[in-house]
Design a protein around this nucleic acid. Structure first.
Length: 89
DNA sequence: CCCCTGACACTTA
DNA sequence: ATAAGTGCCAGGG
């Protein structure tokens, strides 16, 4: 890639999350790593909370502990519910 | 430019 | 296994 601007991190995050297949979940660490910053797990969630994109199924992004984490759209309960519908328990 | 906040992760006790 | 503390990155005021 030619343009490797630091702010690209956010863009990459959106792409990675949008690439998560249904019924599958990825940890913030995995997304951050794929985005190019394995130490930016926090930044990932932060971007989501402040920039919720309809094309970004952030509900498919879970914590490394296997927990769902948080959600700015009805709370973790809502996220859990969605994941359950996706096939993730 | 400086400070604070934030949907996490990892290490050590 | 559980609890607490520390570190990382990015964005907003």
């Amino acid at each position: 890639m030619t343009n490797q601007r630091p702010s690209l991190f956010s863009k990459k995050v959106y792409v990675v999350v949008a690439k998560i297949p249904k019924g599958n979940v990825m940890t913030y660490k995995q997304v951050a790593t794929k985005a190019g910053n394995p130490h930016a797990a926090r930044a990932v969630g932060m971007l989501m909370s402040k920039n919720y994109n309809p094309k970004i199924p952030c509900h498919r992004v879970v914590r490394s502990d296997g927990k769902v984490g948080n959600y700015n759209r009805g709370g973790a309960s809502r996220k859990l519910e969605i994941l359950r519908e996706e096939g993730y328990r």
